[in-house]
Design a protein around this nucleic acid. Structure first.
Lengths: 140, 140
DNA sequence: CTGTATCCCTGAGGATACTG
DNA sequence: CAGTATCCTCAGGGATACAG
């Protein structure tokens, strides 16, 4: 279902369904969700491995994002009452279904990130898409 | 090429390619990018129509996001020197390729948002995924 | 109509310290 | 090991006013 009605007729995107996009954005659009989902993949991964696999994530963010994902039924948390505490996280079927879309995103990124970078560099030269770069000294 | 490339046995995610995910996240993970891309669809849309189609977006954010997308070569900006100024934005091929992934995300959201909401509601009752919600039941 | 420039505020999220 | 609790920064982004 990846290839929706892309090109063809006057198929502008969904009119009012944009709320769905907003929802999924609020859910997976944060800094770490997609990363965690893709890192989880199909395996059960424990907390520390997760932390090690995602460089730069803080415990706070890892825990928080995991809780959000668990709350939404995208993954399950399994705590083993052992001497060295072990907790494993694993995607649910629902989570795995999202993994597909995430992988599509990641696939796009892997396939086109160079092109994007190239375009951006070219734009710098032509001065196309410069946002608000302070060209002159701001009013001091 | 949308699928993974370094997938060997199980479909655990990409080891070091997570940088790509971070990149695409930084690009489309902001509040409005996916919305603009999906709203653009396959048609050329003018600024005011874009603004009308995306409730809640400010001119600042619309302009800024459009510039970012233009800079990255995801869309083109065409200004018509007419009496009432008209500017149209249209996805490039690159942008349309991303549109596929965005639609996949949106499709997932449309298909599962109810399930997610249901899970979340259930978690509230079982007390599963409560992050730091100021719960008003201290006496448990 | 299509932006640009400012002010300002909220909250995502990093750093750090502590607990079971 | 697997979190929890606090503090604090910084930048995303809304509101508003102005300009071409």
């Amino acid at each position: 279902m990846a290839a929706a009605r892309t090109v063809g007729g006057p198929c502008q995107a969904w009119p009012e369904d944009s709320a769905f996009i907003r929802e999924v954005l609020d859910r997976i659009g944060d800094k770490w969700t997609m990363l965690i989902i893709s890192t989880l993949g199909a395996e059960a991964v424990r907390y520390s491995d997760l932390q090690a696999s995602i460089p730069g994530i803080s415990q706070r963010m890892l825990t928080q994002t995991l809780k959000h994902l668990e709350r939404d039924g995208l993954l399950t948390r399994t705590a083993y009452a052992e001497v060295p505490p072990r907790v494993e996280y694993e995607l649910t079927d629902l989570g795995r279904s999202l993994l597909d879309a995430v992988m599509a995103m990641a696939g796009w990124a892997a396939a086109h990130h160079a092109e994007v970078a190239s375009n951006r560099a070219a734009s710098e030269l032509t001065g196309i898409g410069r946002a608000r770069v302070p060209v002159s000294t701001p009013t001091d």
